[in-house]
Nucleic acid binder design. Structure first.
Length: 205
DNA sequence: TGCCAGGCCCTCTTTAGGGCCTT
């Protein structure tokens, strides 16, 4: 697969449209099934962190207060990933924050997102749930660190992605899985996975 | 003061409702 960047945000809440901001970002570059580079930073957006979020993530007001400004971190991580295609677990969430935080530094996203959760729902419909942690356990992948910290979650989403690529190659006898194919799979009705991959096979032979 | 997401996907559907998933 071509190089992709798997990203994960920790935030003060669920919606940048209602004033929520990022508190931490991680991005890992995945190439040939391996993580080849990592970026991770807490970021200070000047927001109080709700107690519930501190309980969930372990990220406190004190940690964020001593972190670099959000604008500096977003410039760094945007430069780090460049125009590499993006992947996130439940990408609709990370896409909202990526676009919102970039807009604050007057930058615009240059690439598409693919969603590891939507692909997993199609590839592993029998999984007990499609939360990242459950899928890591379901696929017997190693836990990379504390859940709900950006780098650990990005690393685990990356390993899940690599596992799913291998599964697609094995199950459908294709040699390569592109970012475009992931987006094709996630955009199709769940029952149409076989149809999608059959057509992909035809384009590669 | 108190409110507060939204896209996906199933079904007892499509003139809708509710669970899942992210923090």
């Amino acid at each position: 697969m071509e190089r992709v960047a798997v990203i994960d945000f920790e935030t003060t809440g669920l919606s940048p449209g209602h004033g929520d901001r990022a508190t931490e970002i991680a991005a890992v570059l995945v190439e040939d099934g391996k993580v080849v580079a990592r970026y991770q930073s807490l970021m200070n957006a000047g927001m109080r962190i709700p107690a519930f979020i501190t309980g969930l993530t372990g990220i406190s007001d004190a940690m964020v207060r001593s972190a670099p400004p959000a604008a500096k971190v977003m410039r760094e991580v945007a430069n780090f990933v460049g125009d590499t295609p993006l992947v996130a677990h439940n990408a609709s969430f990370d896409k909202k924050f990526w676009d919102a935080e970039l807009a604050l530094i007057e930058r615009v996203r240059a690439q598409e997102f693919a969603c590891s959760m939507l692909v997993a729902r199609r590839l592993f419909p029998q999984a007990p749930s499609h939360k990242l942690g459950v899928l890591i356990e379901f696929t017997s992948l190693p836990v990379a660190g504390a859940y709900h910290r950006a780098l650990a979650d990005a690393e685990m989403a990356a390993s899940l992605l690599v596992r799913m690529e291998a599964e697609i190659c094995r199950r459908y006898q294709v040699a390569d899985v592109t970012h475009a194919l992931l987006r094709d799979i996630q955009g199709r009705p769940k029952h149409a996975l076989d149809d999608c991959l059959e057509r992909y096979q035809q384009t590669r032979t």
